[in-house]
Amino acid sequence: MTAAKGQLITLRELTPEDIDERYLSWFRDGVVTQFLSARNLTRQDVIDYIEEGRRSGTYHMLALCDAASGLHIGNVKIGPIDRDNGNSDLVTVIGDRNFWGKGLATEAISLASQLAFENYNVRKLCGSIISNNVGSIKSYTRGGWHIECVRKHQYLIDGELQDEIFVGCFNPKLAPPAAP
């Protein structure tokens, strides 16, 4: 099932069949996982996580695929969804480094944002990015998100202080009125 199709990528439900050695290698790659908490996953860890999201409905895992070849190159996670407040995180990772720097993450963020708004009635999407993750900051802001605030010197990574950048995007149908 295709959840969304863009010019460069398609998004579809992530399935247990997607979790192969190539997939798992992404989460053993120190460059890919530099800004991720998910590392050194087992196939069963990932399958259990997919199933828990389906069962609970609190998050949705999508396979990010190259539109030209259909190759699964990364993931998008919508969630956890806070139904009381209409908020959700949206996390994107391109695990296959051969596809970095081509604008695919930007399109994935834009498409996944639309899915979250239309399919899950999310009012606002949120994210947190470490300041030296320049590629992610560019991808989210080019994907229609805005920097909401910066927490200065929030992290100490490899002896270097890093800021935490908060980004967000409102559902245009449910956005608050503009300030006077």
Rank of each mutant, 00 (worst) to 15 (best):
S110I: 05
A116F: 04
L125Q: 11
I137F: 14
L24V: 01
L125A: 09
G103Y: 01
I9H: 04
P80V: 04
Q44I: 07
R12A: 02
N87R: 15
C126A: 15
I19A: 00
Y59Q: 10
D48L: 12
R97I: 07
V91W: 15
S56W: 00
K5L: 09
L104R: 11
P180T: 15
A68F: 08
S69C: 05
I94Y: 03
P80W: 04
S136Q: 12
N40L: 11
W100V: 05
E13C: 07
S110F: 15
L90M: 09
S88V: 01
E107D: 07
F35Q: 03
K138C: 14
A175G: 00
A179G: 09
N119R: 14
R54C: 06
T92V: 15
K152L: 10
P16K: 00
H60P: 01
G103Q: 02
H146R: 15
E51C: 03
E160A: 11
A112M: 06
T58K: 12
M1Q: 10
F117Q: 00
W26H: 07
N119Y: 13
D66M: 00
D45M: 09
L36Y: 05
D45W: 10
Y23I: 00
L8T: 13
G143P: 00
L90V: 08
R142Y: 07
N85E: 04
N87W: 15
V32C: 03
Q162K: 13
R97T: 15
D45S: 06
D48C: 13
R142W: 13
S25C: 02
C65D: 05
R43M: 01
F166K: 08
T92H: 04
K77E: 11
A116W: 06
L161D: 14
R83T: 12
Q162A: 06
S131W: 07
V46G: 00
E160M: 14
T106P: 13
S139K: 06
L115A: 05
S128N: 14
E118F: 09
D20E: 13
D66F: 05
R22W: 05
E51Y: 14
N75C: 09
Y120A: 03
S113K: 07
G79M: 01
R123P: 02
V31P: 11
L174K: 13
E17R: 04
D29Y: 03
G86F: 06
S139Q: 05
G101K: 14
A112W: 08
A105Y: 11
P177Y: 03
S37W: 12
D89I: 12
E118I: 00
G159S: 14
V76A: 06
I81A: 06
N132T: 13
Q114C: 02
V93C: 10
E107N: 05
L41N: 03
W145G: 09
G101W: 08
I109E: 13
L161Y: 15
G70F: 00
A112E: 08
A105R: 14
D66T: 10
S139G: 01
L104S: 01
A179T: 14
H153S: 11
Q7I: 13
H146D: 09
A67Y: 00
V32G: 07
A108I: 00
G57H: 01
A38P: 07
L111P: 03
L90S: 02
K77G: 09
I94L: 01
S110D: 09
E164D: 14
E107A: 10
L125S: 06
T106S: 10
G159R: 04
L64E: 02
N133V: 11
E52Y: 09
G95Y: 00
G168N: 11
A68W: 02
C169T: 12
G57T: 05
F35I: 10
L62H: 02
G53F: 08
H60V: 01
